[in-house]
Amino acid sequence: MSGLLHWLGSPGVLPVLVGIGKAITLLLGVVLTGALLIWVERRLLGLWQDRWGPNRVGPLGLGQVVADMVKIFFKEDWTPSFVDRPVFVLAPCIALSVMMLGFAIVPVVPGWQVADLNIGILFFLAIASLGVYAVMLGGWASNNKYSLLGGLRSAAQMITYEVFMGLAVMGVVVQVGSFKLGDIVAAQANGWFVLPQFLGFLLFALAGVAATHRAPFDLPEAEQELAAGFHTEYSGMKFGMFFVGEYVGVVVVSALLTTLYFGGWQGPWLPPIVWFALKTGAFIVLFILLRAALPRPRYDQLMDGGWKVCLPLALINLLVTAAVILARQPV
């Protein structure tokens, strides 16, 4: 006991413990926000579609979140006999954990960030491409033709948006000269990057929607075409992980848009946490609005748009940014 106290007292241990505590708090916060989004989305869709949405359980229907979570935790976690069991179980775990890892690099407020990696953005890009494994493996392991088609679509979608997503965000990197998200936020003290990098912002937002498989880029699950696509065979908590993973993805992409293009936590008068929450919340609402407003393109149209329009635009954006920076540099 005294040994433990002694160890705790030694220099360097406490900051680590505090760091772990902060990390757990942050990630827990993201998952809870993701769960809350189930309710937010349903209420907002209801509002825009002239109907109520869940309004019976608790005040404003907020109890619906709890009810849904209780349901999903206690539902029979059934694994069909014909699936490839290890992969089938692994896929939803990847879906949720990868998205949470992505949040690790986001500076929420000064001092609150799980890891300020000096390759922050590269880390996010790597994590985002890992995320597609969840969908592909889930679709493949389900041993169901609809799931397989969903998995195929997600692979096709991934190679489309990945490329221009990376290139779009490079504009910001060139301007700041760092991959570190902390530096990027700091560099926006005098002006958000959404103005100089407007094109990059649009492209990154587009790719972000595709990366989370949200409507209108929900082709891998496309209910009207593939029943439920890659997660047709999933139920119970395994489905819940896909489900919450999608919402966590929404939070992560919204937080990144805030950080990269809208100055992160910076803003006058209000405390940083409020600014961060407001900006991120606005993007989340935008995600939901997109779903309410738009039909779904066919996947060859999505690929056409990605390769023939978005990729050249991202390249032009990067070249122009680089040229401007070079031109401004004192020779």
């Binding site: 825009w48 579609q49 002239d50 009207q224 779903r291 309410a292 039909p295």
Partner: peptide, 16 residues
Amino acid sequence: YAQDVGAMSPIFYMFT
């Protein structure tokens, strides 16, 4: 028709 090409909202207005 709108729903089958992926548009979610119109059907709710039309049901009204």
